[in-house]
Write a protein that binds this DNA or RNA. Structure first.
Lengths: 321, 321
DNA sequence: ATGAAAGCGCTAACAC
DNA sequence: GTGTTAGCGCTTTCAT
């Protein structure tokens, strides 16, 4: 390539990386010839010489949960803009496997994005010292992180409901031991108190349609006019279970979901959901990682706020009586 | 590292790659010292020297469709066993974007796995000449590929149904223009003919719960005793729509799904589905790629057969009258 | 503004 | 069985 263009290879190299250091005519000629011969600088050789691979490790616990697909997609896209490639690893919800993966990956990529990490804090701290690390959906001390503020989103649902006259709401909680429930319930209670409403908590139940159908019994008997489900499966079940019991949605009871799996937009009625802007989260994570890679400080966690998507399943409360 | 162990670096290198060429004591010593100092051979340097990066490109159209999550996970796991890493790219269902991605990736990885490719045949052929390429869920001439034989799976559903005395079945077809429908319908008709049954085709309809609910009207009026839905969303809708119209599942009508999104196992009744063994597909793809990388010929496409999972939603047909 | 040369960390061919 | 050496294709000083 350099020979063909009649210049030294260092000049070719410069033409690509520091275009300003090369005289315009030379630069153009090099570019043109490179195009003609389909020349692309080898990332590997560059990596060896610069110490940076252009690779970003992305670790997610699973791809079965619809939460992570969009996150991975967004991260990949954002990384691509920075001319980086994503090395994806899936921990299969095992903390031990995740630890191994992160350990290994940390020696082979420029930086790491780890979503909903199950690892121990101490380990993550250690890793962050060795390599730029961004946590998504997990907070560990001052480590760089992108947080999705579902509790405040759930609170927004409560506001919406209370604003429509509902005074007695039910939250159907998720699987026993889910770390997600407590903050949501706390946020919910706070809003309810402000708005003069009551919160009834049903569950915990497994996040399945079936469990949702069964818990409908409890919900129907609880004397509430609105219910918020832990996730889409729960809500799908609720819809079905309430219908079976002759409870009309939304006329008798309003229903909302704390997540937004796509099916919920095509049920009857379409369900009011919390949309989690995972695209934003992915972009934010990449931006933050890029900052770390430039040697800048992580700064405060980026908090992504869910957006309330109001659909047919939530309605003004019927006037009492 | 070499210095610490008192040997030449080539010996260290050999101790890792061709252990047999190094005397056992030397090898052990090297390994021990390497462990102690946490030494890991640089993949980048190795890549530059050998011309192989250890990277495998994986291209999928989207992660929103639950089909691809498990496929990606399986592929990643299988690749890991071979000490390879997956560079994931998502085409967002755009043929143009996919083409760009494949083009780019092909210069930076050892091999490529492309799922449900939207690219043109000629392009894929060209790429396959430049770099080991395995297609998943798409067949192009003699190119290496892993196929998922849904038509024969759908036929298995028909057999199951016909075996239980059903003589009039309905297939609810997917989105207009779906390439998946025609082969399924053909397989269905063939089986029906053999078994002395009739096939009614409803649709095409969009693959949404809502459309499934609406098409239930048609299905209910079609005088069939069993219905096979294009996918999970369709079936979820059917379940709901049939119920609303007083049609009991499975007593009046049996219902089955041509895919197996997890929700369907926790509906009421649990739905008979076609399980697509995507784990196998991922493994097969990696194995096949590995073969190509060794310079062997691709061989015939690997065909993965779906497995029929019989649940509560399919029942013996009621005796006529 | 450009060239020459060193070196990134490894592998592989060739000596010994 | 092990050491020596020559690259792999770039980036980056240091000259010019």
């Amino acid at each position: 390539m350099a020979r063909v263009a009649g210049v030294a290879k260092s000049t070719v190299s410069r033409a690509f990386i520091h275009p300003t250091l090369v005289a315009a005519p030379t630069r153009e000629r090099i570019r043109r010839i490179a195009d003609e011969m389909g020349f692309r600088p080898s990332r590997v050789a560059r990596a060896l010489s610069t110490g940076r691979t252009g690779l970003v490790g992305l670790v997610v616990p699973t791809l079965s949960n619809p939460f992570f697909g969009p996150l991975v997609a967004a991260t990949q896209q954002a990384a691509e803009e920075e001319d980086r490639q994503i090395v994806l690893m899936i921990s299969e919800l095992s903390a031990e496997r995740e630890t191994r993966i992160v350990e290994r990956l940390s020696r082979e990529v420029d930086g790491l994005i780890v979503a909903t990490s199950l690892c121990e804090e101490a380990f993550l701290r250690k890793v962050a010292k060795e390599i730029p690390l961004v946590l998504v959906d997990r907070k560990v001390g001052r480590l760089a992180s992108v947080l999705i503020d579902t509790p405040s989103g759930v609170a927004a649902i409560a506001d919406h409901l209370i604003g429509m006259g509902h005074r007695r709401l039910c939250y159907v909680s998720g699987p026993p031991g889910s770390w997600a429930d407590a903050p949501r319930i706390a946020a919910l209670r706070a809003r309810a108190e402000e708005g003069g409403a009551d919160i009834v908590v049903a569950g915990p139940i497994p996040p399945t349609v079936d469990a949702g159908i069964e818990v409908a019994e409890t919900v129907a008997a609880a004397g509430v006019t609105a219910v918020i489900g832990y996730n889409s499966a729960t809500v799908l079940g609720l819809l079905h279970g309430l219908g079976t019991r002759g409870v009309r949605v939304p006329e008798d009871v309003s229903v909302a979901s704390a997540d937004d799996f796509i099916l919920l937009q095509s049920t009857k009625p379409a369900v009011t959901v919390l949309h989690l802007p995972l695209e934003e989260a992915g972009q934010a994570a990449v931006r933050m990682l890029e900052r770390l890679l430039r040697g800048e400080r992580p700064g405060r966690p980026v908090v992504i706020g869910p957006r309330l998507v109001i659909r047919e399943s939530t309605l003004r409360a019927r006037p009492p009586g």
